[in-house]
Every structure is written in structure tokens, then in C-alpha cells.
Design a protein around this nucleic acid. Structure first.
Length: 601
DNA sequence: GCCGTTTTCGGCCCGACTGTTTTCAGTCG
């Protein structure tokens, strides 16, 4: 960690990460789980902080922060002042780095790590893999062949995620911040800048943040980019572009292009490779040649003159010049969009402003951070007309969850909020539901007579996600056939870069949903994006009803909706494909519970 | 280690599932 007077001040995330690491080290070192929890809580508290920790420290108010007491406040102060923390260094000295890394393997926790390290002298992921392959782990009490198999599978998952791609939930905010900082620092040197590459296509993960810009002074502009606060190292540059390593570990590239062919450059930099290839082929068949500089004069066509030049300054003009309908970036995957663009039959994709409400979100009745009234007000402020309170049912250990009795009390609270809005003449309404747990055998966490009292029921799997294919599929289908279940939440249970999707047969699940009129969710949380665009596309083709929800656990998480919308756009979905673009009464009428003759059981 | 009081110390995030046992430990959400 950097030290000395000239070092960059640590940001909140760096401090939170260090306290999380302390928690991990303490777990391996067998410290009381409450002490571990204290460090983890402190890390979460810092994560959720909007103010810069350095400011809080400057005001002497560290101890005022939630879950930060005297001991941790002192450690934060030391860390911010000196750039390092002796307490952390002492702990780290007791545990080899490789041992800490072993805890990153899913299903391998502190107890396992400690036993492998102490009893088998295993101190790295590689050594753990080798030992599992050689069947040496089963020598330990409590370890068997299945455990070895599971560990090997988890290591493979870990390897597949470390292919240097960053989930969009981290890369997009970083790219937006980078672009804004560049415009601010460039002081007029950069006229405009745009995020391009896979991020503009809203792909789930990003290899490199790519920006293109227009500048009247390219050399100075690139120098400015290379010296931004986010830049850790310059990896290479020439007259037109620069590649840097950011302090968050991501790579970023800025390319400068001429304003006169901005549209062509934007298209080229957005990709993907296959889309561009097909675009070139199509252009060629029309007697045009397209390359990275735009449209090159060919067969008497001169794009550098008159109308042609004007057209090239915008992407719409560029596509039009080639003879194609402008193609939204989310569709540029080289699947069938060029053909559709040629016939001018690209769908009118769903737009962010068309979402009228959400059907899956949490409050303090379970593990949400905000009250029913606070969530309602935040949803209303976003312009929504309705929002469903769907707290976890009993059955999910991490949170108390709501049972039948709690739901009756919650209903009064919801009614009171609705009455207040009605009295004020505000067109907004809460509906009451639950996110009911699909238990290990397909039973639900709440009885049918309780579910029947609700406006909507979202059923989700959180536990037993590693069940084998047939079992987890049957379990989910059993829930789908329950007449009270209206929506299946985050159907595969994946967490991008952290947890593989379950082995569920998603096609069978979606067929069952289509047959019974059960809707499937696109969970907009960028950690999930579940359904994925590919599955959402398949769902629409199978005739499933689709809803997009943020599954918000705080008011701020309502802002995650764009990730869901753009996933839906990647799936070629139109407004009419998505249920929560409809007014509440229409939507309620479409729910399974309110439709007669649609249920098979 | 934090918090909220019973202001000096006890309670915190616990239930379900899996693999390995055959009663439980470890992990996860």
C-alpha cells in the first residue's frame, strides 16, 4: 500500500476492502465470529457511505458512523493518515497469501481452509487443486470424494471468472466516471467523449473500458487522459490513442477521432466484430467500402463531399448512407440484426421511460434497508405508478422473513401509505406480495391460504442452488404449478463472476411458465442479470410473460433498472413484451391468479 | 468489536442444505 506525503488518499472502497480482508484473516485465525462480523459490518457500513471517508475523518466524526466504534475508528484514522495499518500487517504475516486466496473458491470457507493448511500443509489454490485431483483430501475426517469433486468444480469456476473481464455493474460506473473526469480535467481540449465497445452494447462483462473522443489538440488531450486521478500506469500510446491501467485494476483506452466522421468511428468502435464484418459485407454488396476510417470512396461514391460528409458525422447518418436502418448498440451481435436492418424491420425496443412500476422489492420487514413508506416514496419519485412490497417469506435463514401474521400487519402499513397518496391525489399505489422461498422439495415457504390473500407472489430459489439438474428443475416446476405463484424470480440464481447459474433446465422451466401463465423475471441487479439476454429472448419466443425488477433492498437500488432494461433490449424485447410497462389494473388482470382457466393445477 | 442499555455487560445472523456421517460441521444466503 502506498505511503508518504504525496500518495493519493485512500478511497472508501479501498478502506472497506481492507476491513473485509481483516475479517477473512480473523476467520482463518479462529477469532470469535462476532469480532469477524464487526469488521465485516464496518466494511459494509463504509461501502454504503456517500460521503468521502477522508472528510468524515477530517471532521472527527468516524465514530458517528453506524457499526463503527472506537477501535475501528482508530484503525481507519491510522489507515487514512499513514496509508497502512500495522494491525492488518500483523494478521497478514500470520497467514500465507495463498491461504487467503483459497477462501475465494466457492464452497471453501474459513474452516476448510484452515484445516487444509494446518493438517495437509496446503497453502495455495494450485496445491488444493492438485491434492483434490490426487484424492488426498478424502484422507481428512469429514472429507469425501464428492467434496473433492465439488472443490475442483469450484476452482474451475474461479478460473473462468478470472479471464480479466469485469462485470458491467462495476465497469459501467467506472467508465462513466472516467469519461466525466476526462471532460472536467481536459478543460476544453476534448469536445466530446463516448463510452464504446462492449459497454455500449451492454454486454454482461467488460474486458477493457473503451472511450472515443473528439479533440482539437489530440496530443494534449491524450496526455491529460494519462494523468487523470484514476490512472495508475500508462501502458502504451501513439498519436491517436492511449491505453492505461486504472487504479481499480481495469484497462482503459481513449481513441481520438475526427468530428467529420464521428458516426463511422462510433459504429466501428462499438462493434462487435461480427456485426462489423456483416456490415462491411452488406456495404460492399451495395458498392461501398467501409473500414475504420468510415466509408471510403468507391465506384464514384465520395463520402467526403456534401451530404455524405454531413451524414458521416452521426451514426444514424452512417447507417443510412450504407442503406441500413440504424441498429441499437444492444443488437449489434452479428446474429440477424443486419438482415433485419436491411429490411428495416428492427423491433421498436423497450425504453427506460416505459417501465411503470416494479413487482419485486424489499423493505425492513425482511432484509431491506428502507421502510415501506420510504421505498414507496422513492418509487413514486422515479415516476412509477406502482410498486410491489415482496419481502422474503420465512424459510430463508439470513433474514427473519414474513409469515402470515406479519403479512396482516404489513397490509395495514401498506394500506395507510396508499390512503395517504390517495388523499393527496397522487397516482401511485403499493401492492402487497411476497418473495416466497421455494424450499428444497418444491414446497413453498408460506401456505397457500396465506399466498391467496396477496396481490402478487414472486417465488424464488435461494437455497439448495447446487441440487442436481432433475431435482432443482422439478422443484421449480412444482412451484410454477402452484396457482398462487405469479412470477419466478431470478430463475437461475447466478451471481455474475461469483456464482454459476444452478444446473436448472431453464428451457423446461420457461415452457412450464408459458403453459401456466407464470411470468419470468429479468432481475436487473447487475450482480445477477437473471434471466440473461439469451434466456430472456428464448422466454419471449416460448411465449412467457416477462417482468423486469430491480429486487431493490434499498431506495438507491431502484436506480439499477437500466441494467434490466438494456438486458431486455439485448433480448430484442419491445414494450409490449414486458408486463410492468402496463398500467396496474391491466397488469393485475394478467397475473396468473387473476386469470381463469390458465392453471394446470 | 459494536451496540444499547438493565451504564457494565450480554446479545449479536440463523435456518436450510449438503456431504459425511448416523449426529454434525461447514457453507451459504
Amino acid at each position: 500500500m502506498a505511503s508518504g506525503a504525496n500518495r493519493t488518499p485512500l478511497n472508501n472502497k479501498q478502506v472497506a476492502d481492507l476491513f473485509r480482508s481483516i475479517g477473512e484473516l480473523l476467520q482463518i485465525l479462529d477469532e470469535s465470529r462476532f469480532v469477524v462480523m464487526a469488521y465485516q459490518n464496518a466494511a459494509r457500513s463504509i461501502d454504503g457511505l456517500e460521503q468521502d471517508l477522508n472528510e468524515v475523518a477530517g471532521e472527527g466524526k468516524l465514530e458517528d458512523l453506524p457499526r463503527i466504534g472506537k477501535a475501528i475508528a482508530e484503525k481507519i484514522a491510522t489507515l487514512l493518515e499513514t496509508g497502512s495499518l500495522p494491525y492488518y500487517d500483523e494478521l497478514a504475516a500470520q497467514v500465507p497469501e495463498g491461504v487467503v486466496a483459497m477462501m475465494q473458491v466457492p464452497d471453501v470457507g474459513p474452516k476448510t481452509v484452515k484445516r487444509l493448511w494446518k493438517e495437509l500443509d496446503i497453502a495455495s489454490v494450485e496445491a488444493m487443486q492438485a491434492a483434490a485431483e490426487q484424492g488426498r483430501l478424502r484422507g481428512l475426517k469429514g472429507f469425501g470424494a464428492k467434496t473433492e469433486e465439488r472443490i475442483l468444480k469450484s476452482i474451475k469456476l474461479l478460473e473462468s471468472r478470472s479471464d480479466d473481464r469485469t462485470p458491467i455493474g462495476a465497469s459501467l460506473p467506472a467508465a462513466q466516471e472516467l469519461a466525466q473526469t476526462l471532460l472536467k480535467h481536459a478543460d476544453g481540449l476534448v469536445q466530446k467523449v463516448e463510452i464504446v465497445g462492449s459497454l455500449r452494447r451492454w454486454r454482461e462483462t467488460t474486458g477493457e473500458i473503451r472511450l472515443i473522443g473528439v479533440s482539437s489538440a489530440p496530443r494534449e488531450a491524450l496526455q491529460c487522459f494519462e494523468s487523470l486521478p484514476q490512472t495508475a500506469e500508462v501502458l502504451g500510446s501513439d498519436a491517436k490513442q492511449s491505453r492505461v491501467l486504472l487504479s481499480n485494476g481495469m484497462h482503459a483506452r481513449l481513441s481520438l477521432v475526427g468530428a467529420e466522421n464521428w458516426g463511422a468511428a462510433l459504429c466501428h468502435a462499438t462493434g462487435n466484430h461480427k456485426h462489423l464484418e456483416e456490415l462491411r459485407e452488406f456495404a460492399q454488396s451495395a458498392g461501398l467500402r467501409v473500414d475504420e476510417n468510415g466509408i471510403v470512396p468507391q465506384n464514384g461514391f465520395d463520402a467526403t463531399n456534401g451530404a455524405g460528409r454531413e451524414a458521416l458525422a452521426s451514426e444514424e447518418g452512417f447507417y443510412d448512407l450504407i442503406g441500413l436502418q440504424w441498429t441499437p448498440p444492444e443488437l449489434r451481435e452479428g446474429v440477424k440484426e443486419i438482415d433485419a436492418a436491411r429490411r428495416r424491420e428492427l423491433p421498436q425496443l423497450i425504453e427506460p421511460g416505459q417501465i411503470l412500476g416494479e413487482l419485486h422489492g424489499h423493505t425492513t420487514w425482511s432484509d431491506g434497508k428502507a421502510s415501506v413508506a420510504e421505498m414507496a416514496e422513492a418509487a413514486r419519485r422515479k415516476g412509477y405508478r406502482y410498486w410491489a412490497v415482496t419481502d422474503h417469506s420465512v424459510g430463508l435463514g439470513v433474514t427473519a422473513g414474513v409469515d402470515g401474521e406479519a403479512l396482516i400487519a404489513q397490509r395495514s402499513e401498506i394500506d395507510a401509505v396508499n390512503e395517504r397518496y390517495a388523499a393527496e391525489g397522487v397516482d401511485f399505489r403499493l401492492i402487497q406480495g411476497t418473495e416466497v422461498e421455494v424450499l428444497g422439495d418444491g414446497e413453498l415457504g408460506l401456505p397457500d391460504d396465506v399466498l391467496a390473500t396477496l396481490d402478487i407472489v414472486v417465488a424464488s430459489i435461494h437455497i439448495g442452488l447446487r441440487q442436481e439438474r432433475e431435482r432443482i428443475t422439478e422443484r421449480c416446476i412444482k412451484a410454477i404449478h402452484n396457482p398462487h405463484v405469479d412470477v419466478i424470480g431470478h430463475p437461475t440464481g447466478r451471481l455474475l463472476g461469483r456464482r454459476s447459474p444452478s444446473d436448472i433446465d431453464i428451457e423446461r422451466v420457461m415452457r412450464a411458465c408459458a403453459e401456466t401463465g407464470t411470468a419470468v423475471e429479468i432481475n436487473a441487479n447487475p450482480a445477477r442479470l437473471d434471466l440473461s439476454a439469451e434466456h430472456a429472448r428464448q422466454a419471449a419466443e416460448l411465449g412467457c410473460k416477462i417482468v423486469i425488477n430491480t429486487d431493490a433492498h434499498s431506495t438507491g437500488q431502484l436506480d439499477l433498472m437500466p441494467y434490466g432494461i438494456h438486458t431486455a433490449r439485448r433480448a430484442w424485447l419491445r414494450r409490449t413484451d414486458v408486463m410492468n410497462t402496463r398500467p396496474l389494473n391491466d397488469l393485475l388482470g394478467l397475473l396468473k391468479r387473476n386469470r381463469s382457466g390458465r392453471c394446470t393445477k
